[in-house]
């Protein structure tokens, strides 16, 4: 980049710059150095994650050596141990909690976001304020009554309790995010459909949905990430029956000194679905995390 600095100066200042301005040039020595530096920093930054994956392919013996072992004969034993043990029921619970809550969020959130995207609703601002303020409500402030209520109706250690809670947890994000997508739909599209006599559900379903599909998908992915990774409710409201993947990893707290390789394998497997989803949804990630504020 240092090499590119003099470049603009050689151009006459008065002439408007040509459109595809070569702000940063490739191939220069400075550029190559910066590229190498960027790669090096990135690799150092993610090294704990790379180390996790590497450790997952070790035997327990070489997972804990001083100095750490870098080259070894990889083995799949740890993955086999994890899957062969009781990992799968946790995955099943996580899948139910994640998919069901995400579906519920979309069913509740899409009409709400639509209503909030058309201006005439008088209290739009208040409602949006309310939704986002629930995100600021500390979970610890509500967990006790939820625990007591769940115990009363026999819903402790029940996966559907988590589904309801995760839906409430993600609904504000989804409403804000979906609203930002609705705002981008040209008003004429909806008006035209209504002129032809289409009812609201019909407008939503057959006119808006096809246009909104990428936005709905992005919203779903964000909800999935948060639900899959959620720990607080999961650890406090479940026991043996409804425990999810993050709760499974708690089991390693007691035995952490002994089973690093197996822990790494379990952590890798547990993270894999969300990491892959996140990689696929990179472009939408910013928008989702900022609740639609940044595109």
């Amino acid at each position: 980049m240092t090499a590119t600095a003099p470049a603009p100066r050689t151009r006459p200042a008065a002439v408007p710059t040509p459109r595809p301005a070569p702000r940063r040039r490739r191939g220069s020595v400075g550029g190559t150095a910066l590229t190498v530096l960027t790669w090096a920093i990135a690799l150092v930054f993610v090294s704990p994650a790379l180390w996790m994956v590497l450790t997952a392919f070790k035997t327990e013996g070489i997972a804990q050596t001083d100095p750490p072992t870098l080259l070894f004969q990889p083995t799949l034993d740890q993955f086999r141990n994890v899957v062969g043990a009781d990992f799968m029921p946790y995955v099943g619970n996580s899948l139910i909690a994640t998919l069901a809550s995400t579906a519920l969020v979309l069913v509740l959130g899409t009409p709400a976001a639509y209503a909030l995207s058309i201006r005439p609703v008088k209290r739009t601002k208040d409602v949006l304020f309310f939704f986002i303020s629930t995100k600021m409500l500390p979970l610890v402030a509500v967990v006790v009554p939820i625990y007591v209520a769940a115990a009363e109706v026999g819903m402790l250690d029940n996966i559907w309790t988590l589904v309801v809670l995760y839906t409430a947890m993600n609904l504000p994000i989804a409403v804000w995010m979906l609203r930002s997508f609705f705002l981008e739909v040209p008003a004429g599209v909806v008006e035209a459909a209504q002129m032809e006599g289409a009812s609201l559900p019909r407008v939503l379903w057959s006119v808006m949905l096809p246009i909104m599909a990428p936005g709905v998908a992005a919203t779903a992915l964000i909800c999935m990430i948060f639900s899959w990774n959620e720990f607080f409710f999961a650890v406090n409201l479940t026991a043996s029956q409804a425990a999810t993947v993050p709760v499974y990893l708690v089991g390693f707290i007691t035995s952490e000194g002994l089973y690093w390789a197996q822990l790494a394998a379990a952590a890798t497997l547990a993270s894999l679905p969300i990491v892959v989803i996140g990689w696929m949804a990179q472009r939408q990630l910013v928008r989702g995390l900022s609740m639609g504020a940044v595109k």
């Binding site: 993610v46 969300i274 990491v275």
Partner: peptide, 29 residues
């Protein structure tokens, strides 16, 4: 630059790993 997409993909990975796993792995490995 060369491999920009790959670098970005690598860099967002820590955010996607289950926080519970992140904490345990930092604590141990």
């Amino acid at each position: 630059f060369l491999g920009r997409g790959v670098v970005r993909t690598l860099l967002i990975t820590p955010f996607l790993i289950i926080p519970v796993a992140t904490a345990l792995l930092w604590k141990t490995t």
